[in-house]
Structure formats: C-alpha cells, structure tokens
Amino acid sequence: MAILQVRGVSKRFGGLQALNDVNLSVEEGHVHAIIGPNGAGKSTLLNCFVGKLDPDTGTVMFDGKSLLGIKPYEINQIGVSRVFQTPEIFADLTLLENVLIPSFAKRDGGFKVNWWPRVDRERVVRDHAESVLEEIGLYDKRDEVAGSLSRGDKRRLEMAMCLSQDPKLLLLDEPTAGMSRADTNATIDLLKRVGEARGITKIVIEHDMHVVFSLADKISVLAQGTVIAENTPELIKGDPRVQEAYLGGPQE
C-alpha cells in the first residue's frame, strides 16, 4: 500500500519550472530513493512534503490526508519527520534535551503550557529519550552540548531526534553529505538497523550511489523537474535514460 501519493505536482519559480508534473508513489515500509543531477528539483520536491513550499498544482496525500496547505508542525504531528542537509539541531542544549524536545512534542502535541512538572521527573519521556540515544550510540555523550559534536555525530543526533517521535515517514535530505567513507558506512548500517526494526518508511535524497544502492528498495530518477524513471535499483542501474541524464554515461 502506498503511504505517500504524489500526483501531478508542478512548481514554478519565476522563469524556472522546478517541478513539472511529478508523480511518485512510496510504499509503506520501503526505502525510496530520489536521485538526480544538481538542480533536478529533489529538494524542492521534499519541501513540498513538509509544508515549506506549496506546489502550484497537484496533490500530496500522506496516509489518506493531504499535506498541502498545512503548517510544518502539523505535518510533523501526523507522522512525518525530516533530517536536513545541514543538521538542524539545538546547538546550545544537551544531547538529551535535543531528544527530549521532540519526545515531548510527540506526547503533548503542538502546544502545551506544561510548566509545573520538572523535566527530570518525567520518567517515561526521559527513559524513552535515553533509550533512543542508546540505540543510536550517543548515550555516553547525553550531557554534552550538541554544538560541540562532530558533523557525523550531529547528523546521528538529528536522526535520534526524528526517531524518538516514531514517525511513519522519515525524509532524509542527503544524510551522508560531507561524511567520510567510514561515517557513511556507519550511517548506512544505522539506517538499516534502526529503520528495519521499526518498519519506518523512508525517502532518501542522495548523490552517493553507494548509499542509494545499499539502502533503496525503489529509486525515482528526477531530471529537469520530471521523474524520468522509477524502478528497483537493479533495473535503474541498467536504464540507458538514467545513465544519460544522471550518471552521464557508463557508471564509474
């Protein structure tokens, strides 16, 4: 069953047709990769899923509800979390607090003046946040300030923040950009391990073919705002249109 249905989405910025009649269907529990050359419209498309942009035409249905015309926080509350290209974390807060905030947002909704209880007495939420940090391998650093982490750890922390909300759909915008090979492999392992255990549907935008082919169940290729191919990794690899548009000839 498709958890995310994108139908006829177009978006124009002035003279630039960023997205042109994009159709996409993401199966529940799958890892769906979106690849394409720079400027193909990948990030624009992702922004249409999280309420940052509204497309000019088309529909985006998630789990039977439209994602258009509602605010980012409302989209998150119905189960969509996002990892950004540059990690968006709470740099001045501790790692534990970084994970506690999304956990409280999940429990208390978009707004609650919960001013009386102490955070350290909220055992259930705290235990949950600590277990997520443990799972992701950052538990030992839970009292450190997030801003002092390495880039790879920041990315992992951001993933922990998203995972703590038990999202139905996780959007990852170039999760391994700027990472060393070792960090990249660690991230792949993490996504496989954590994602499969929880059955979270994921959409991954990625340039690194190694990441794409090790994770994806299905790949959509975007070029000049249009999906030119959508298929399993094996078939995408051999597709001549993809090779021409994106890989620029035979694969390295």
Partner: peptide, 26 residues
Amino acid sequence: IFRSPFGMMLRGVKTNQNRMNYTGVN
C-alpha cells in the same frame, strides 16, 4: 518554568526555531 518541559521548549525556540517547527512544535 526553567526546569519544566515548557521552559525547555522555550529554550528550543531560542536555539533553533526552524527545527522546532519541523519537530511538531507550534
């Protein structure tokens, strides 16, 4: 307020409002 979840949310707004919005917080 400082020690409560409410206060923590306020500090979250100070540190990264963008992340708060994408974290389900109005």
